[in-house]
Design a protein around this nucleic acid. Structure first.
Lengths: 196, 196
DNA sequence: CGACCGGAGTAGACACTGTCTACGCAGGCT
DNA sequence: AGCCTGCGTAGACAGTGTCTACTCCGGTCG
């Protein structure tokens, strides 16, 4: 039941995560994963009745990793917590960095046909993160509709991550650094950074 | 060479567009398109050396439609043009509406593996639209960096379209109408709507 | 007028894929 | 000892994209 469980189920997911990072999402074939795990192509079926469910399990690893990164980014030092505005900025930065760090995983995580599938559904996995995000936004902007503002900003981060990843914003940002763009986005939704 | 060209090339794209609308992107099989066009599965190869190129041609139809819609939305009445702020709002609305109206086409248009392929590349197809968008934003906000602001807003629209489409913003907007969310987005990037 | 020739579409093969089913094969329980 | 159940194997099947050999037919040229 631990992480280094030698069970086939965990090993398949491990292999999938590696394969995803090294070869990209289109390489995540059921048979290729089975091959690299050293089992026959029918073996995964015992644990994942369908290919999509195996992909969901792999994507879940991505959500776990993202949650970990966010947790670390929000409280780098427990004795000196960040103010809400800085927390939102840190979360945003972490989110977009994740998309650039692990592009294949990010792509897999937001395949909408994956969101529907799975026993419990993959969609719920990101809900706690969004709630946390909405709460933080609410602390920055107590007067506004925090849910709506958070939704708008969330969508903005998502869009920035996507468009930046496949370089569809070349005109917007000639340079290589997306920091200024992120600052623009944050300032737009949260107002000019007066905090700190 | 006209639209109703009975040539196989145009017919394949026509069939693809219909199939995309009726069955979704995963139904856009090379063989299924050929089947519905009444030719053998090898026939498309003469005009589209690879499956991706056929998909690119289909997606290009989507970009054309989007450009048409934007053109009509920006100048509903030539004698009474909209002010820049209203034009940006109309473009934003048109963009998101397009994504909801033709979800399959929208999804196909922004498959990044399609953006790379094609003879001239599909990416350039959306550049004029973005330039127009950036110009409009520049008229609304002459002082700011129009390119960056336009990029941020563009990404926001993209994110809203995506997340709304697969219902990943349920907490943010309990209602069915995405109008308020769009207003929030526009107000964030362009300031409160003082124009008119 | 007849031969040729090149574009257009057909038909079959190939290596893949995901899914399904029947089959072994081990270990543990009664 | 015998059986059963969990786990993985192996093969079949339909479907896919790509490649290649072939046919067919209309136009051109000698």
């Amino acid at each position: 039941m631990t992480e280094s469980d030698t069970g086939l189920r965990a090993r398949l997911v491990d292999v999938g995560v590696e394969l995803l990072a090294s070869e990209g999402p289109q390489a995540l074939t059921l048979r290729e994963i089975a091959r690299r795990a050293g089992v026959s192509h029918g073996a995964p079926r015992r644990y994942f009745p369908t290919h999509l469910e195996l992909l969901s399990a792999i994507a879940r690893r991505g959500f776990d990793d993202l949650a970990d990164r966010v947790g670390k980014a929000l409280s780098p030092d427990p004795h000196d917590p960040l103010d809400p505005r800085a927390q939102v900025a840190a979360l945003a930065r972490t989110y977009v960095d994740f998309a650039l760090d692990r592009p294949g995983m990010y792509e897999l995580m937001f395949r909408h046909d994956l969101l529907e599938s799975g026993t419990l559904g993959l969609r719920g996995t990101s809900l706690p993160l969004f709630s946390l995000f909405a709460d933080l936004v609410g602390e920055v902007h107590p007067e506004a509709d925090a849910r709506r503002t958070a939704g708008a900003l969330w969508a903005n981060l998502h869009g920035v991550a996507q468009l930046w990843r496949w370089r569809s914003l070349p005109l917007a940002v000639p340079g290589e650094d997306l920091g200024p763009l992120l600052d623009t986005v944050l300032a737009a939704h949260l107002g000019p950074e007066g905090g700190r």
